[in-house]
């Protein structure tokens, strides 16, 4: 089912670095637009919103890695850390614009917003929850934490749900764009409890052939996936 030709191993590292560069390009482009007057008459809000939407897209991409492998046989696990970290960077930019350019460091207003306004409370909580994930995203932490690492990083499901809720609560009415993002997150989260039974069924079906392409077999990056069967 691997329709996409596999990338030779020697290019893996380079492709990951390329992903960081490409992933940061929307932020750089929009920042350039906003600072040179190319983002309309309320550039702060527009930039804040577009960065927030890109953060959600990167979270969606992060969550899509597992089902992509299970269902389509495409193993892009090596890109998942980059996608997750990019999402974190976008969330940080999103918050910094709100803090520095929108509210201009009016900490009273920021505190008031966080305490009083549920969508900001949720958004801020998601930012805080992303920090331990970003901090433990290195190989050393993965080895050190072992199974705890997987439990910790399951927080991404909570963060994704929180991000979607933050978005829905922030818009005046749920139109096509918010709906699409939220629906994708819902779909990707809904897949998780279905995953184990699905893989079991798939394994059962494949058992007689004993083909070497069993999708539930450990991935090639043991450092990133210490216990693949518990994942997801």
């Amino acid at each position: 089912m691997a329709a996409i030709p596999a990338l030779p191993r020697r290019y893996h590292a380079a492709s990951i670095w390329a992903l960081y560069v490409v992933g940061l390009m929307p932020a750089a482009w929009y920042f350039f637009q906003a600072s040179t007057g190319g983002m309309g008459f309320n550039p702060v809000k527009t930039f804040e919103h577009v960065i927030g939407i890109w953060a959600l897209r990167l979270i969606i991409a992060t969550l899509a890695i597992t089902p992509l492998r299970d269902l389509a046989g495409i193993n892009w696990v090596r890109y998942r850390r980059a996608l997750g970290l990019l999402a974190f960077y976008y969330v940080v930019i999103h918050f910094m614009v709100y803090l520095l350019l929108d509210l201009r460091l009016d900490l009273g207003a920021v505190g008031g917003d966080i305490v009083k306004r549920p969508y900001i409370t949720i958004g801020f909580a998601c930012l805080l929850l992303l920090i331990p994930l970003a901090v433990t995203s290195n190989n050393w932490s993965i080895r050190k934490l072992g199974p705890t690492w997987i439990k910790l990083h399951a927080l991404i499901y909570l963060i994704a749900a929180g991000g979607a809720l933050h978005y829905v609560l922030a818009v005046k009415s749920v139109t096509l764009v918010p709906f699409t993002h939220v629906a994708l997150i819902a779909l990707l989260l809904a897949y998780r409890p279905l995953r184990k039974p699905f893989l079991k069924w798939k394994r059962g079906r494949k058992a007689p052939t004993r083909s070497g392409t069993d999708l539930s077999a450990p991935a090639r990056e043991p450092a990133l996936r210490p216990a693949p069967d518990q994942q997801g």
Partner: peptide
């Protein structure tokens, strides 16, 4: 969902 204490004058101030 937000404070009404202040307002952003459109077309003034730019990005920074």
């Amino acid at each position: 969902r937000w404070s009404q204490a202040t307002e952003q004058r459109i077309g003034e101030g730019g990005f920074f």
